[in-house]
Simulated assay, not measured.
Amino acid sequence: MASSAALPPIPPTIGSITASQLVGSLLNFYLFGVLSVQVYVYHACFPKDKASIKYLVYLIFLFMALSTCLNAADAYFWYASGFGNLIQFSKAHISPFYTPIGGSIIASVIQMFFCYRIWIIKKSAVYLSIAIAIISLIQAIGGLGGGIKAYVAANQDHDELRTVLMWLIGDACADVMIAGAMTVLLTQASRENHRQTNDLVKRIVRLIIETNALSASVAIISLILFAGVPGTNYFICPTMILPGIYANTLLVTFNNRAFAAGGGNLTQQTPSFADNYPRPIPPMTFATNPTSVNILRTTHKVSDADIGLNRLERGSSSDKPHYDDSTWNLNG
């Protein structure tokens, strides 16, 4: 470390210089805590899910745990051992591995998962799924490129405009397309069905729009700060929390089945991103509703990592999404 005589003086704007990484780090720790609760809820409520879905959830959790540890090491490097040292603070250290690189990888994996769900719901939407997947790969390439260049340059400036644009614009576009496609397909599936089905689909559509809108909004805010306020590092904070938002989005979608499986018993509890995000959903047992069709007694019987529309996703011979009462008969 350089001697104190060689260090530049601390400017009066030190707060605006250091706040972005500090706030981003604190939010990252919070989001990892929320994710830990969500993973526990998933493990407790849905032990019968497919092995591939379980691997996805646990691998994402391990990846986020590693990213959080790297973020903690950076926070120590910037604010403890490098306290008052602007030269040390200006170094990227290991942040590119969990911000552009890790964030783009997590985003791409989760976006690919939703592409698969779109294709399962409606086979003829394969070209739309491919288009979203291509955009997701482009943003991943942009994030990887930006992270590698930032690490090699060993600074926080991220001065490669092209890679940053590929990453953030690709993130936002893919999320908007996923929300739009899922909303249209699920809304089509609810037409001409009974009221309980329509209420369920409305709750699912609301959750999908909220979760994807949040991640897209954070990416857009990062892009606006990057392009609209040049010469500052304000955009770093929202980019730091993108991986945590994507990981929690996936777990919120999975855990929402605990509400969806409740049928008429939970019609007064309209789940939303705000409802699911900060509070865990404990394992719960539902009593039989005599006015509905063979309602699920326990969430442990759900075997497909979806939101209660297993029969819907299988499609039909006419390649149109459909739903029937047997979807709820999950004990058979």
Rank of each mutant, 00 (worst) to 15 (best):
T239D: 03
G146T: 07
K301M: 01
L22V: 07
T327S: 06
I208W: 05
V34N: 07
A181V: 06
S317L: 11
Y98V: 01
L266G: 06
I134G: 01
L223R: 10
P280Q: 01
I178N: 02
S90M: 02
N265I: 09
G228A: 04
A287G: 14
G33E: 04
R203T: 12
I241Q: 08
T187W: 11
G15E: 03
I141T: 05
G103M: 02
T299F: 00
N256S: 14
L137K: 01
T267S: 12
N265D: 04
M240C: 03
T285N: 09
A179D: 07
F235M: 05
L62M: 12
D49V: 04
R314G: 09
I236R: 10
A19I: 06
V205S: 09
L168E: 05
V252W: 04
M182E: 01
V229I: 12
G143M: 00
E210C: 08
K50I: 04
G146H: 10
Y277G: 08
R203M: 10
N233H: 15
H43F: 14
P278C: 06
W78I: 09
G15P: 06
S4I: 11
F77N: 15
S129F: 06
D74K: 01
Q268D: 10
A227G: 11
M112T: 13
M64D: 05
N28L: 06
M166T: 08
A51T: 15
Y127M: 04
G262P: 03
I221H: 06
T253F: 10
I245C: 02
H93G: 07
I60W: 01
A131C: 02
K320V: 13
Y246W: 11
K54I: 02
D159P: 13
P278F: 10
A44T: 14
E192T: 15
M177T: 03
S81M: 07
M240E: 00
H194T: 10
Y98D: 05
A227R: 12
P9W: 02
M1H: 05
Y55H: 13
L200W: 07
I118E: 02
S326Q: 11
T285H: 13
L312P: 13
N265H: 14
P238E: 01
K320H: 15
I220W: 06
S124Q: 11
A44R: 15
G332T: 11
M112C: 12
P230N: 00
G146F: 01
L66C: 10
L128N: 05
T187L: 09
I132V: 08
V39L: 04
N155C: 15
E313K: 08
L225Y: 08
K301N: 00
